Simulated scan of single mutants.
Amino acid sequence: MTRSSLIPPSTEETSDPFEHLVATITHQSHLCPLPLTVQPIIWNYDHCLRLYPTPHTIVLGDQSEQKAFKYTGITCFNPGSFAHDSTFAVYRPCSEEVKLSAVEEND
Rank of each mutant, 00 (worst) to 15 (best):
D85I: 14
A68T: 12
I58D: 02
C32D: 04
E97P: 07
Y91F: 15
K99E: 12
P53W: 03
C94E: 15
S10P: 07
H56R: 15
T26M: 03
E13R: 10
N78R: 00
Y52C: 05
V90M: 15
R3W: 09
L31A: 09
S4D: 13
K67L: 05
L21K: 05
R50T: 09
R3P: 08
K70R: 13
K67Y: 14
G73P: 06
T72F: 04
V59I: 15
L21I: 09
P17Q: 06
T75L: 06
S15H: 12
V90L: 15
E65P: 08
P8E: 05
L6P: 04
E12H: 07
F82P: 00
R3Q: 12
T57N: 10
F69H: 15
H20C: 07
P8W: 04
P55L: 05
C32S: 08
A83H: 10
I41H: 06
V38Y: 05
S101M: 02
L49H: 12
P17M: 06
V103M: 03
F77P: 11
E19H: 13
L34V: 05
L100S: 02
D46S: 13
T87S: 15
D85Q: 03
G61V: 14
G73K: 07
F77H: 04
P40D: 03
F69M: 07
T2P: 09
S10K: 06
R50Q: 14
H20G: 13
N44H: 08
S101E: 01
Q39Y: 12
L100A: 02
R3N: 11
E104D: 00
E105G: 00
T72E: 11
A83T: 11
S10W: 03
P33A: 02
L60S: 06
C32V: 08
T26F: 04
T2N: 14
A68H: 12
V103Y: 04
S101D: 00
G80R: 00
A89W: 03
V90F: 15
I58M: 15
K99M: 07
S95M: 13
L31C: 11
H30F: 04
V59R: 02
S81R: 07
A68M: 10
C76P: 06
D62H: 11
R92C: 15
L36M: 05
V22R: 00
A83Q: 13
T14C: 11
P17R: 07
A83Y: 08
S81I: 01
L100Y: 01
T14E: 09
S5P: 03
E96G: 10
T24Q: 10
L21V: 07
L60M: 14
P79Y: 00
K70E: 14
T2M: 14
F69R: 06
N44R: 11
T57S: 09
L60I: 14
C94R: 14
N44W: 07
K99L: 08
V38K: 08
C94G: 11
C32Y: 11
I25G: 06
P55S: 05
S81P: 05
R50N: 09
A89P: 07
M1T: 12
Q63F: 11
L60K: 02
P53V: 05
A83W: 12
V90C: 15
K70Q: 13
Y52A: 10
V38W: 01
